[in-house]
Simulated assay, not measured.
Amino acid sequence: MLAVTLQQDPPAGESSYIHDISITNLPIPKVEANHVLIKLQAASYNHRDEWIRQGLYPGIQVREKRWICQILLLRPNLAITPQAGSILGSDGVGIVVNDDNQLTGQRVIIYPSVGWEKDPRGPEGKFAILGLLPLPGTFAEYIAVPSVDVFPTPAHLTNAEAAALPLAGLTAWRATFTKAQVKSGDHVLITGIGKHLTGITKSRILGISFNGGGVALAALQFAVAAGANVYVTSSDESKIKRAIELGAKGGVNYKD
């Protein structure tokens, strides 16, 4: 199968990345017990993939060397070189193709992480996200994942729409409902509409702060669907206009 894999060296003539990528021919994954093999139909590109290529994603090690392990123990948030050979990609939608599973033939969405199953407060185990070894990634023709981590794709969503939902959607849901506990009638301010989550504060007026990507747009739509009065800020008038089209009550350009 073909897959997009992370390389150790930077791309030639490119200064913004410290890791190149390559289209690599790899064996189709073996299917372990209680796993499904998925032929991917669509995958989404997250800001996380950009950070990995830029060497900015925290707590990632490339080699099993004692000094790296010691550094990670002392400074667990330190950015370490991502592991070369990883298949990138956290989100994907595809068709289950292994013959011995009740999901065979179904179009499914892939849950993008491991170690966080039920507790709304945080991960129960060692938390990790698809797209870095030893976990597989979705930028490939096939992926094998636990059968408990796939869910039927809503029929009204295209492959591209469904593939863009999991990582951004789960982050937005947690920010909006688990943390901020938005409910009908609340007044919600989303700062930096069209950008991803950086922090949340809560009072009688709820503030959700973002700085890039699709998480803010998902949070906006979740809050509107819950009956909240949502307002946004941005430096881009087109983003404010789009937010109002999606249900925001209004917006402010913070450069005015």
Rank of each mutant, 00 (worst) to 15 (best):
N229Y: 12
V145F: 12
P152Q: 11
S44G: 09
E64A: 13
G199Q: 10
G131L: 08
R48Q: 05
K183V: 10
D20R: 01
N211Y: 15
L217Q: 07
L74W: 08
A160Q: 07
V230S: 05
S86P: 15
L74T: 14
G212S: 10
P10H: 07
D119P: 03
V93T: 06
I21H: 08
T81Y: 09
L133F: 13
Q8F: 12
G92K: 00
Y17Q: 01
L133E: 10
K126E: 09
P10M: 10
P112A: 12
A223N: 11
A219E: 04
A79H: 06
R242S: 13
T24F: 06
A33Y: 05
A180D: 05
K255P: 04
V230E: 00
R53L: 11
Q61T: 06
I205A: 11
E124G: 09
V31E: 03
R204F: 02
W116D: 07
P58I: 09
A84F: 09
R66L: 13
I21P: 15
D256G: 00
Y231D: 02
P152L: 13
S238F: 05
V31Q: 02
P11E: 06
I110P: 12
I109Y: 04
Y142F: 14
W116A: 07
A160N: 05
L246G: 03
E124M: 07
A162E: 04
I200N: 05
D186P: 13
I18K: 04
L157E: 01
C69T: 14
I68D: 06
Y111T: 05
Y17I: 00
G115W: 11
R242Y: 04
R75V: 08
S113V: 10
F151Y: 14
K179P: 03
V62C: 13
V93R: 00
K239C: 05
I38F: 00
K241A: 09
L74V: 14
V36L: 00
D186H: 13
G55N: 10
Y57P: 11
F151W: 15
S22A: 02
I110C: 08
Q7T: 08
V62M: 14
P58V: 11
I38K: 01
S209R: 06
G214H: 04
S147W: 11
G227Y: 10
T81A: 15
Q8H: 14
H35Q: 01
G131S: 08
R63V: 15
D49F: 08
G192L: 12
H196W: 15
E50V: 14
K183M: 12
G137Q: 03
L246R: 12
R75W: 06
G115M: 13
Q106G: 15
V230H: 07
V252D: 01
K202T: 12
D99E: 14
L56G: 12
I52K: 04
I21T: 13
E14K: 08
K126H: 13
S44D: 01
N46P: 04
H35I: 01
